[in-house]
Amino acid sequence: MVPLSWYLIVAAALFCIGLYGALSRRNAVAVLMGIELILNAININLIAFNRYITPEEVSGQVFSIFVLAVAAAEAAVGLALIIGIYRTRDSVNLEELDLLKG
């Protein structure tokens, strides 16, 4: 069987790539994609831990289903906000969102 650490390494790599994307991209949609990568990393973690640490329970798998559902709700609200910005400003570049500062 594939050892647990392999899953954790993939998840950690995915987490780092997602976090880097979320923090470095200037396009709001790209930031959202970075966040989705982080959530995927979390799901890999949860399911792998469930399989290797507590195989008799399903709590980790249930948790990951909640993560999927909430991620969808969050993405829906986020995209609505991005569309709202696009309608008033004709851009989703975060560097141009500078009405509020100080």
Binding site: F15, G18, L19, A22, L23, A28, V31, L32, G34, I35, I38, L39, A41, I42, N45, V67, E74, V77, G78, L81, I82, G84, I85, L94, L97, L100
Partner: peptide, 18 residues
Amino acid sequence: GALKYFLYGAVASSVMLY
């Protein structure tokens, strides 16, 4: 204001979830 709140919030809560 909402978009900034959302982007910070979504990143922070995913990091916490990790």
